[in-house]
């Protein structure tokens, strides 16, 4: 793509446009630019849920134990 500010042709941007057009179906665009971040967040999310749930399980077990001791 021609950059008016630098008077140069940005071949990367042009390539992106071609690639986007090739992967476009009625407005949908197939792209892999976010997959790395998505996979990382997915892994972190699953670990995060297990950590939070683990803490809740531990807390409930302690609450139950305290309740049983009281009896």
């Amino acid at each position: 793509m021609f950059n008016l500010l630098t008077n140069t042709v940005d071949t990367t941007a042009a390539a992106e446009v071609v690639a986007e057009a090739a992967g476009t179906v009625q407005g949908l665009q197939f792209h892999t630019s976010d997959i790395g971040e998505a996979l990382l967040c997915s892994a972190a999310g699953m670990v995060g849920i297990f950590v939070v749930v683990g803490i809740i399980i531990l807390s409930v077990s302690l609450l139950n134990k305290a309740g049983a001791d009281k009896k």
């Binding site: 197939f30 997915s42 999310g45 699953m46 749930v53």
Partner: peptide, 27 residues
């Protein structure tokens, strides 16, 4: 509360959210 360890399955069954996140990020 009577069987708290079962809660671990609640965590595991959220896998679909994060799997879908990865697939949806392609589009």
């Amino acid at each position: 509360l009577s069987n708290p360890k079962l809660m671990i399955f609640g965590a595991a069954a959220q896998f679909g959210i994060f799997f879908t996140l990865s697939i949806a990020s392609l589009f």
